[in-house]
Simulated assay, not measured.
Amino acid sequence: MFSKLAYSVFEQSIQDYHQFDSVDQPINNPFPKDKFEHLLYLKNWIDTVQWHFEDIIRDPNIDPVAALTLKRKIDASNQERTDMVEYIDGYFLQKYSHITPKEGAKINSESPAWAFDRLSILALKIYHMNEEATREAASQEHRTNCQTKLNILLEQRTDLSTAIDDLLNDIENGDKFMKVYKQMKMYNDDDLNPILYQNKK
């Protein structure tokens, strides 16, 4: 099952990151570049670093100059995340290029890679919610509340994993087909963001 493989890679990425727990640490992808796992690991590593960027920037005492620098890093990370999703969808387009959709086949509301993006973020939520549910310094009420939330996240993991595997099976069987629409983000583009292109004059 693709979802089980993906989730195990996401877990490994998260565990590897938290060995040092620093947004500045370099990635050490353990998978060969020609393997699908390499893409999954890289995707989750980007998500994990950005998760911690988002924590840091919410520090009420953060220096404004440092916050602006970090905001730029978050913007760049968001773009990198989107590019990776589109790259992974390219993998699936190639994988299923030989499939002829059945008459009446339908398109899904999201592509396979965007579903894996949700699973990657969910893996991070589960990791960190489990930390809170077992944090000894926290109150019992806090731990209980977090355990309740963790149980819901685990249920979501089951549901999302099933939905991903069902989608991939439907594509393989020709019951559904996929397209990749580029995100075409405008705010990062010097030619599309009016603030940027007006400053180029």
Results as ranks from 00 to 15, higher is better:
residue 109 S to Y: 08
residue 108 N to H: 15
residue 116 F to K: 03
residue 151 N to G: 12
residue 122 L to C: 06
residue 101 P to T: 05
residue 147 Q to Y: 05
residue 102 K to N: 06
residue 149 K to C: 07
residue 147 Q to K: 09
residue 120 S to D: 02
residue 151 N to T: 11
residue 155 E to P: 05
residue 108 N to W: 12
residue 129 M to E: 13
residue 158 T to E: 12
residue 127 Y to C: 08
residue 156 Q to R: 10
residue 99 I to M: 01
residue 104 G to V: 03
residue 114 W to R: 15
residue 151 N to H: 11
residue 130 N to R: 08
residue 123 A to I: 02
residue 100 T to N: 03
residue 158 T to F: 10
residue 114 W to I: 09
residue 127 Y to M: 10
residue 136 E to W: 07
residue 104 G to Y: 02
residue 155 E to F: 11
residue 156 Q to M: 10
residue 90 G to K: 05
residue 127 Y to P: 06
residue 84 M to D: 02
residue 127 Y to T: 10
residue 112 P to N: 10
residue 118 R to C: 05
residue 96 Y to E: 00
residue 113 A to F: 00
residue 122 L to I: 12
residue 138 A to S: 11
residue 135 R to G: 03
residue 140 Q to H: 12
residue 127 Y to V: 08
residue 108 N to I: 09
residue 115 A to Q: 12
residue 101 P to I: 04
residue 136 E to Y: 13
residue 117 D to Q: 11
residue 83 D to L: 08
residue 91 Y to D: 03
residue 101 P to H: 02
residue 98 H to M: 01
residue 122 L to K: 08
residue 107 I to W: 00
residue 126 I to P: 01
residue 77 S to V: 10
residue 98 H to L: 00
residue 145 N to S: 15
residue 110 E to I: 13
residue 104 G to I: 02
residue 77 S to N: 10
residue 157 R to V: 01
residue 78 N to K: 03
residue 125 K to R: 14
residue 87 Y to E: 14
residue 115 A to S: 09
residue 101 P to M: 04
residue 131 E to T: 12
residue 97 S to Q: 07
residue 137 A to L: 09
residue 117 D to R: 07
residue 104 G to Q: 01
residue 87 Y to H: 14
residue 92 F to S: 04
residue 142 H to T: 14
residue 136 E to D: 14
residue 120 S to N: 02
residue 86 E to Q: 11
residue 78 N to R: 05
residue 108 N to V: 07
residue 114 W to H: 12
residue 142 H to A: 15
residue 157 R to N: 04
residue 111 S to W: 00
residue 158 T to R: 07
residue 76 A to H: 13
residue 143 R to Y: 03
residue 90 G to E: 06
residue 110 E to F: 13
residue 122 L to V: 09
residue 95 K to I: 03
residue 125 K to M: 13
residue 126 I to N: 01
residue 132 E to H: 11
residue 125 K to F: 11
residue 113 A to R: 00
residue 76 A to I: 14
residue 159 D to H: 14
residue 155 E to Y: 11
residue 89 D to I: 04
residue 81 R to W: 14
residue 126 I to M: 04
residue 149 K to W: 08
residue 99 I to P: 00
residue 122 L to Q: 08
residue 78 N to T: 09
residue 94 Q to T: 13
residue 83 D to I: 06
residue 134 T to W: 05
residue 136 E to H: 12
residue 100 T to Y: 04
residue 78 N to Y: 04
residue 106 K to A: 10
residue 122 L to T: 09
residue 135 R to V: 08
residue 107 I to P: 01
residue 117 D to S: 13
residue 78 N to V: 06
residue 124 L to H: 12
residue 153 L to H: 06
residue 150 L to T: 02
residue 118 R to V: 07
residue 80 E to L: 14
residue 116 F to L: 15
residue 107 I to H: 00
residue 112 P to R: 07
residue 119 L to H: 00
residue 79 Q to P: 03
residue 149 K to I: 09
residue 113 A to M: 02
residue 140 Q to S: 15
residue 141 E to Y: 11
residue 114 W to G: 05
residue 148 T to A: 05
residue 82 T to H: 07
residue 159 D to C: 07
residue 144 T to E: 11
residue 108 N to T: 11
residue 121 I to Q: 11
residue 96 Y to W: 01
residue 149 K to G: 10
residue 123 A to S: 12
residue 156 Q to L: 13
residue 103 E to Q: 14
residue 82 T to G: 08
residue 148 T to I: 07
residue 105 A to Y: 01
